[in-house]
């Protein structure tokens, strides 16, 4: 045995080297990943704020305080304030039935809850026009009774509801399934009523996931464009939400104003990401599994 071979045998490669990559490969991969993300994520985000403030703070302030912008902000807040609580109640009810009981057709129900994720927002808006529009199923009846759904707030709320149906349910179901039913059954045996079990046992166990679902649901509700665009009618100052207001400003070449309103929604997106980060850490700290994001969008 030569001296060199003996030295190699005595000093085997560290395991870390065998299951890791050389430094130059690491650096290259990190560079590729960051380059891709910079080009497609970070630069577009920065562009929103830079373009918004390009013409100065006065123009920015004027753009977000003019009457049409304020009414768009108000409508967006109202639509979210109605649709998020409704989908919250739905999410809790669906999760209670699916996670705490065994029944036939559960997988079908899960698929149906996911359905809105796969449907194009434009199609989601269209179907409500087919049901409630002038030539739709209830069009004549609504007209006789002087009720407006399409091109009015109810239509905007319905389209938003459709798009955001799965968010809360999708966060709660996997967590509640993982938690099982022992605690609730124990409470039941000790004589607790249904609502008591829910508010004292189940809700505290899932509160962070619930909050997480609500945050995601709200972000999507406020930012929805395609579905709302079909049912809103784009009446300035009346049925324009913030995303639709941005479109109108942009098409009128009022770029600074469009980006000013857009920066508010981009700010909302950043707040959403921060809250999501905080909530995820909370859930991790409690040692509970959390649904991955891909299921929620």
């Amino acid at each position: 045995m030569t001296a060199a071979t003996a030295a190699r045998l005595q000093a085997p490669r560290r395991v870390g080297d065998a299951t890791g990559e050389p430094t130059w490969v690491r650096r290259l991969l990190i560079g590729v990943a960051l380059g891709f993300l910079t080009l497609f994520l970070f630069v577009p985000l920065a562009a929103v704020f830079v373009e918004a403030l390009k013409k100065g703070l006065d123009v920015y302030w004027a753009a977000i305080t003019e009457p049409d912008a304020l009414s768009a902000i108000r409508l967006t807040l109202i639509a979210a304030a109605i649709s998020v609580p409704l989908n919250l109640v739905f999410g809790v009810a669906a999760a209670w039935a699916i996670a705490k009981f065994e029944f036939r057709g559960k997988n079908l129900l899960l698929t149906l809850i996911d359905l809105p994720f796969s449907v194009s927002p434009v199609v989601a808006g269209l179907v409500f026009v087919l049901v409630f529009g002038l030539q739709g199923w209830f069009g004549g009846w609504l007209r006789e009774h002087d009720l407006k759904i399409i091109f009015a707030l109810p239509g905007i709320v319905l389209a938003t509801l459709f798009i955001t149906v799965p968010f809360v349910a999708r966060e709660l179901i996997p967590l509640m399934q993982a938690q099982g039913t022992e605690q609730e059954e124990a409470a039941r045996v000790l004589g607790a009523g249904g609502w008591q079990i829910f508010f004292r046992i189940t809700l505290p166990n899932v509160k962070w996931a619930l909050l997480y679902g609500v945050i995601l649901c709200n972000a999507r509700a406020m930012g929805e464009f395609g579905a709302v665009s079909v049912v809103s009618g784009h009446i300035r100052g009346r049925t324009n939400t913030m995303p639709l207001h941005i479109e109108i400003l942009y098409n009128e070449y009022q770029f600074a104003a469009a980006f000013a309103v857009a920066s508010l929604l981009a700010g909302l997106a950043l707040v959403t990401l921060v809250l999501k980060y905080v909530v995820e850490r909370r859930i991790a700290a409690y040692g509970r599994p959390i649904a991955s994001m891909e299921q929620s969008s």
Binding site: L45, G223, E224, A266, L268, A269, M293
Partner: peptide
């Protein structure tokens, strides 16, 4: 991209 409205 999940959080940022598509119009923005």
């Amino acid at each position: 991209p999940f959080a940022l409205p598509t119009a923005v």
